[in-house]
Amino acid sequence: MFGLLGPNGAGKTTLMRILCTLLEPTAGRIMFDDIDRLRHPQRVRELIGYLPQEFGFFKRLNAREYLDFAGGMKGLSAAERRRQIPELLERVNLTDAARRPVGGYSGGMKRRLGIAQALLGQPQVLVVDEPTAGLDPEERLRLRNLLAELSVERIVLLSTHVVADVESACSRIAALDRGRLKFVGSPSELMKQAVGRVWHLDVNPEEYARLQGRLKIISARRTDEGFALRVLSDNNPLGRGAAASATLEDGYLCLMDTGPAAQSRGVPA
């Protein structure tokens, strides 16, 4: 499984749409083994399953009917659909709900049905665009595990905002920023960017007001005395920070380092 990170507007969805032949690149080349994406888009489509970010369903169809329709659109024969659909429903754990209308599904169930749809035709590459957005923690975990399972037999390309999504399951990660590739490597390499730069720091309200705009504050929690901060800094902030262990997200923030937030001080009353 390969993870694709980047801020909103970095080009993650655009990259995925180009891979999936929905958008033509201005220049460059993409190869799937020896198949040229530009010259043989139809052959590439047969290799790829795609789950876009926004995904529409026919609310009154049940899961089985929906997959039958989607399989037909993909050109699968009726016999092939009859064979694949029960297997896929089992795979995404929707067999019990397969006869209920999709309109009544939870967000997580819809995503899993979307993945079943993308898997019709047994694609060798699965492209999923922010599949975990809006899911609760349990559903997110279930979806991550499903994708990890699927990646055993195929390439899974996963884009997300939630750094924790790629942490457990992806062996390699790429980070995009404003259309450019900023990083390719393993999660631990990305995390290394923040090692020695993460600090815990307790400050009083006056100090907090002073530090804003000067320090990169990752989080601030109100305490009885002031604020408990977690900050990114090359040097020990105020000389009394306590070194903290770095997370993958800290590494990502160091990579994307945009400096302290341009937030004004003082709360509007």
Binding site: P7, G134, D136, Q212, I217, I218, R222, E249, L253, A261
Partner: peptide, 28 residues
């Protein structure tokens, strides 16, 4: 749906605003 940078900016604003009010933040 926010990227880490946007999320941090919003949460830092809320931490300050919570000095004067009760804020309930529902989240998945």
């Amino acid at each position: 749906g926010l990227d880490p940078e946007e999320r941090i900016n919003l949460l830092n604003c809320l931490t300050q605003l919570a000095d004067e009010r009760i804020i309930l933040l529902a989240t998945s």
